[in-house]
Design a binder for these strands. Sequence first.
RNA 1: GGGUAGGUAGCGAAGUGGUUAAACGCAACAGACUGUAAAUCUGUCGACAUAUGUCUUCGGAGGUUCGAAUCCUCCCCUACCCA
Length: 405
Amino acid sequence: MSFPSLQEQLDVITANTVEIISPAELEQKIQHSLKTGAPLKVKLGADPSRPDLHLGHSVVLRKLREFQDLGHEAILIIGDFTAMIGDPSGKSKTRPQLTAEEARQNGASYFEQASKILDPHKTTICYNADWLGKMTFADVIRLSSHYTVARMLERDDFERRYRSSEPISIHEFLYPLAQAMDSVHLRNDVELGGTDQKFNLLVGRDLQREYGILPQVCITMPLLVGTAGEDKMSKSLGNAVCFNDLPSDMYGRVLSIPDNLIENWCRLLLPHNGEGRRAILEGWEEEPRSAKRRLAREIVTQYYSTTEAEAAEEHFDRLFVHKKAPTEIELTLFSEPELPLVDLLLALGAAASKNDARRMIQQNAVSIDEERILDIKAVITLSEEPKTLKAGKRKFFRIATAANS
RNA sequence: GGGUAGGUAGCGAAGUGGUUAAACGCAACAGACUGUAAAUCUGUCGACAUAUGUCUUCGGAGGUUCGAAUCCUCCCCUACCCA
């Protein structure tokens, strides 16, 4: 097993990072690895309470992949046990707790999605219930004696919640300790996380030291800004681009980011040696439009393929630039030959309620075969020949009667 | 255990007996505009109906009243203070 040189490794590892605690220790660890030929154990904790991975997660996953490419060992910890606690990081509210079974299922899905970035054959997967679940209450008490309430309250989000009189449950204090135990158990050399995980990573470091293990190096990565350009990307804020989004959705969402985000996204989301990355970084200021289109294509290509990326672009142009109906729309069959438009919209899922459907009609949002319909009492006559129904800018349906003779 | 302040629509937050389905902000949805699903502007935003009508909502359960989110009783939940 031969590793790249110390300097080469450091160049790759430090790129895009926010903080490395501490750089000197990192260097020592790499040198030690070079000397002994033993790869570094690099830990990334996965929270299976949110099994929908989005581009924000990919920043950290990509860093882990870089470690893999350098020849080190990537360990993905599925926090099935800690998910039953719920990570309080950055949250103003207690997270919902998962059952063991949900956590396992989500964990499997997490790994599957993460495999779009990681090399799945070189990734070690662990479930932390395997060791945390075996701890006795006495073990937990011993563990918690290593930390103090004051130190816990140092943490930003806890402090904020405490000051603004919001509830903090005792079990939330146990979360950082539990996930720090993972580091004790694994004896990993490096742990990765977003900047919001800094506290947790440091607890892992402290605890390893307490248990007489060489403390891990903590590497934090920037949090990706979401499509709206302000908050960090998060599923619940609706500004996320998910791994599992359809290519066309993914493309459109990327294209919707503000122009000033192009450079940042390009740096954090595209492979450091790719030509797409270079092209975008060079050209985005002169031609933001084409740079962003390129960025969107590159991203879709990562999760799907070049072909699908191109199809997504065509689809987008057709719908939003030329304002035409998409080429392929799913056909829905109805048994009744005549249906009130309101009921039709509800049945298709285009409207949340009949009132909602009426609203859309009144707001000029509904058309059938390019013809606007403004009458909320309109009754639509269906035939075996499909009609194209458009509700809003993005919802298209093809409707017809079921052919039963 | 005692005291105090609270629990309002997806979220945040007004409202303390009747023109209150409930201000306002965010989110969401629609329209216009745009290279864009961004930004901006306009409108909508409980359900059912459409003749400005009916029904269900303000932690839960009862009660007072012609009439309650608003008053009373009990219960549940949260924060803070005192033990």
